[in-house]
């Protein structure tokens, strides 16, 4: 790949040579960089790129806004007429989605799962990571590689045996089963990330605690865990979104009992039902109910969310 890249970049630049040359002669010879007059090439590029940037804003947010606006319109208005403003402000669609299509119940189910799986992931992940990062023992490296390797493979590859493992333990279609599966599949990344985080923390504070007579467990919970708070927040946001948005695991492991369906399953099902009934309004309202809280939380904590989600690729 590198060779190929190199070649293309070379040809590109040679092709642009004259242009660069022209730009250079445009400038007064000894002008400092800041005072260079804007070349026409620059402003054309500016206009073009700005237009493109704005276009992608419409692409990224447009469909979501369209769904939200339409969630306030009546289903009969929407069909065959995608653009239009709500004629009257009614939240009938929302009440339909919330109670008739059970979106409220599904959201509660998702929340219950998350209440168990997220703290579980964070606790077990940072426990394993702390031991791996700060103690030397036989097998340390192997365990680390075991966790790191697990990040690479999509769940789908193991789904069939996983289904029967869960079945054998009686975990299929149960809340605690889903929680355990969520925790297990979040562990690789959590452990990997927290290990590198614990390694960056200074050892002197823990030493002082030991000299004062704190046990290992106490040092971990009262000294190291509070010190690791920035890492915990990043990875916590990552896991929160990952588990809240999880679609595949519940589909495979939790699909027999509709009463226990999670929000993502409920929405997918709603969209299938919409196909039969043509109730666009309820579908869009259901989508809005699912989208708006997440988007609001994201906009409030945007810096942390962006850092949390991209953290994995940077490390």
């Amino acid at each position: 790949m590198s060779g190929e890249m190199q070649v293309t970049s070379l040809t590109k630049t040679t092709a642009e040579e004259p242009e660069g040359e022209a730009a250079r002669t445009d400038q007064p010879p000894a002008a400092p960089p800041g005072k260079a007059p804007k070349s026409s090439e620059g402003s054309v590029l500016n206009a073009f790129s700005s237009a493109f940037l704005v276009l992608w804003v419409i692409m990224a947010a447009g469909p979501l806004i369209w769904v939200m606006v339409n969630s306030l319109r009546e289903s009969s208005d929407i069909t065959g007429n995608p653009f239009g403003w709500p004629t009257s402000l009614s939240f009938e669609n929302f009440s339909n989605a919330w109670s008739d299509a059970n979106i409220g119940k599904y959201a509660a189910n998702s929340l219950i799962i998350l209440c168990g799986s997220l703290p579980g992931t964070m606790l077990l992940g940072s426990m394993a990571a702390y031991v791996i990062a700060r103690f030397s023992f036989r097998g340390n490296r192997v365990i680390y590689m075991l966790f790191a390797g697990g990040m690479m493979f999509p769940i789908i590859l193991a789904v069939v045996p996983l289904f029967f493992v869960m079945d054998n333990f009686g975990l299929l279609d149960t809340r605690h089963g889903i929680m355990l599966a969520y925790i297990a599949y979040s562990l690789p990344f959590t452990t990997f990330f927290m290990t590198s985080f614990f390694r960056t923390l200074p050892g002197s504070v823990a030493e002082a605690a030991t000299i004062d007579g704190a046990s290992h467990t106490r040092t971990f919970f009262q000294i190291m865990l509070p010190m690791a708070k920035p890492g915990l927040i990043s990875i916590g946001i990552f896991n929160f979104l990952g588990q809240w948005n999880q679609y595949f695991l519940p589909l495979a492991l939790n699909s027999t009992d509709p009463d226990k369906a999670l929000l993502t399953q409920g929405l997918a099902e709603l969209s299938v039902n919409q196909g039969y009934e043509g109730d666009w309004g309820a579908l869009f309202a259901g989508l809005s109910i699912a989208m708006i809280p997440i988007l609001v939380v994201y906009m409030v904590f945007q810096r942390q969310v962006q850092e949390g989600l991209t953290a994995g690729a940077v490390k």
């Binding site: 940037l53 992608w56 804003v57 990224a60 947010a61 469909p63 979501l64 769904v67 979104l241 809240w244 948005n245 999880q246 679609y247 929000l263 993502t264 399953q265 929405l267 997918a268 709603l270 969209s271 666009w280 579908l283 869009f284 989508l287 699912a290 989208m291 997440i294 988007l295 994201y298 906009m299 945007q302 969310v305 962006q306 989600l309």
Partner: peptide, 22 residues
Amino acid sequence: FKVVYFFPQVLSVAIVGVVWGS
């Protein structure tokens, strides 16, 4: 721009699939 571009990333694939389906 970055905040808006990041919108799709915080949503579930299930939501994205249904939205784009419509």
